[in-house]
Design a protein around this nucleic acid. Structure first.
Length: 264
DNA sequence: CCCATTTGACCTTC
DNA sequence: GAAGGTCAAATGGG
């Protein structure tokens, strides 16, 4: 794998630091939820954070190379159109899925560590191979994660895999372990972004629901209500950095260490 | 027998 | 009406 050049590395670090700083500010804002304008500011900050993460991911993609985060050359604008979902009372009764809540990747295997059950297959116009539809094997536990697998025309072992929704079953625990893979880190970041896009306040798709064990204690938190927030943004950030693939870890070897990302 | 896959029907969206 | 997404009966494997 190609080494990240120093200027590129610095830009990447800069973007990540921006993300961290914005996240910290947002963290403080969220502690004062519903204080004048706080929600509006929080929304702006979220956009900043997501831009930073997206930019960082873009910089990790060589030009012309498929982005590991979304398998497209341009990361940010390709996961927008279609989607979600569906109250079904009878056979075939559903609402067409949109792509807002989707993450796309191209891989040489459809295996991703999760248990999936195939529930359909469809011939797609202008595609040489049928599209296969999978849902989580834990659907009976309420897990609504779905994925579509489309074998690509231009390669014998390349699949375009589109994920919808998030695992709310026990499968979810694998997500932190999967950060040892750089692509899975990207997936997590995309999940994070998508969860922001689609969250209603009552939606179950929150960082909390990822069930990552809290690891940091924030001193300001003594009074903060932690009833529905098991984990802070700082924790997540620390987890992400701490589980980076060696490729990303190299970035921190020279000029910057993980300690530089510590939260106050 | 249980569970996963296949496949045609059914439904929504465009 | 075409295309895509989902359902569920039928089927097959362990």
């Amino acid at each position: 794998m190609e080494e990240t050049s120093t200027p590129k590395r610095e830009r990447l670090i800069s973007e990540l630091i921006k993300g961290r700083d914005s996240t910290m500010t947002l963290q403080n804002l969220l502690r004062r939820r519903f204080v004048d304008g706080g929600l509006v500011l929080a929304e702006d900050l979220l956009n900043k954070i997501l831009e930073s993460f997206s930019d960082s991911l873009s910089k990790l993609c060589s030009s012309g190379e498929v982005c590991p985060a979304c398998d497209q050359s341009t990361c940010s604008d390709n996961r927008r159109e279609m989607v979600v979902s569906a109250v079904k009372d009878r056979r075939g009764c559903y609402k067409r899925r949109k792509r807002e809540n989707s993450r796309v990747k191209i891989d040489d295997t459809i295996e991703d560590g999760y248990g999936w059950r195939k529930y359909g297959q469809k011939t797609i116009l202008d595609a040489n191979f049928p599209r296969c539809y999978y849902r989580c094997t834990h659907k009976d536990e309420g897990c609504r994660a779905l994925k579509q697998v489309q074998k690509l025309q231009d390669g014998p072992e390349m699949f375009q895999i589109t994920y919808f929704g998030f695992h709310t079953c026990q499968n979810i625990k694998k997500q932190t372990q999967m950060f040892s893979d750089s692509e899975d880190l990207s997936t997590f970041l995309l999940n994070f972004e998508d969860s922001r896009i689609n969250q209603s306040p009552s939606s179950p798709c929150t960082i909390t629901d990822v069930h990552i064990t809290p690891s940091l204690k924030q001193e300001e938190d003594s009074k903060a209500q932690s009833d529905d927030h098991d984990m802070s943004f700082g924790d997540i950030w620390t987890d992400m950095i701490g589980n980076l693939d060696p490729l990303y870890d190299d970035i921190f070897k020279d000029g910057i260490s993980i300690d530089d990302f510590k939260f106050n």
